[in-house]
Amino acid sequence: MKRKWQRWFRLLPLAALALLLSGCGKEGVSALEPLGPVAKDQADLMLISVLIMVVVVLVVGFIYFYVLIRFRKRKGQEDYIPKQVEGNTTLEIVWTVIPIVLLCILAVPTVPKTFSLSDTHSAKKESALEIEVSANQFWWQFTYPKQKVTTAQDVVIPTDRPVVFKLTSNDVIHSFWVPALGGKVDANPGQVTTLKLEADKEGTYRGRCAELCGSSHALMYFNVKAVSSAEFDRWIKEMKAGPDQPASASAKQGEQLFKQNCMSCHAVGASQTNKLAPNLTNFADRKYIAGFLDHDKKTLEKWIADPSALKPGATMPARGASGKLTDEQIKQIADYLFTLSVEK
């Protein structure tokens, strides 16, 4: 009996290790693969605490298995009465003091990092880029106040400087989380919170909402696209210039329909902030539709025809504000939306 379970327990750490190695998550998504200085600082603290805790678990585990094996009840000892030990002051002091020491080792780096990572004021002096984020059920709006540019769902940041996000919410509490770049901060209605992040290298990092915010909490994704400083400046310019006029007849027709059916909530034009629905100025450049759907016309048509079927609780009405768009008209609007590109 004993042999069997011992063998099983020996397998446990192996299984754990296998799991650990099998996937640290996809790059650009996982907190285990930090890709910016903030996330790296946080990962370092995680590592310190994990190491201390592994020591604790190993010590406890060693005593535990030793005790279980050494002092188990054996056959023919039914009448044995162990010595009734009251306690041992020395031992008790030892296992009070050692944890205190371990906790001090953990607390010492914790406190300064708590202050430095939330210090967005000195970051500003380093000419950090400021971006205002307003969270909505279930999408994100990003405004660059100095540059006077507004966009939604995909936020573009430069790699050469820190970015200070100023977060607020227009409805319920959301939480802004880009695991690969750093920890999260809540977006509270009626308040502004700040979060400093920085990306080391160019790439697209997945962001998500981390505070339960309603039916489609699980689908409230966004992307952080980190680009070089020069590319960022060019992007700002292109955003301000706006997309080209649609060329095809179908897209032109779509633009008219869009103006009649969608413009009461959506905006096209980077200078316009609109709280009701995402700004679509560079819609065609984005990675996903509605933050998570494949970026193609077929999906877009499906989305316009019935948004809440794909994203429960989405406030966008089916088939336009009138609710009467035909399949043909939806197709034209989709054609138009796919002309909304600013990147040359």
């Binding site: 907190a31 996330a39 600082d41 946080q42 990962a43 603290l45 995680m46 605490s49 994990v50 201390i52 805790m53 604790v56 678990v57 406890v60 585990g61 535990y64 906790l103 953990l106 914790t110 990092k113 708590t114 990572l117 939480s175 989380w177 695991p179 750093g182 920890g183 999260k184 901060v185 981390a210 505070e211």
Partner: peptide
């Protein structure tokens, strides 16, 4: 209970580190 609770306890201490908790929180 003993090793299980030790596991829950050590992750609790890990969660007490605010900068790291920014990553763990609500995950």
């Amino acid at each position: 209970f003993i090793p299980t609770f030790v596991m829950g306890g050590v992750t609790g201490v890990m969660l007490a580190v605010p900068p790291a908790d920014a990553q763990y929180h609500d995950s």
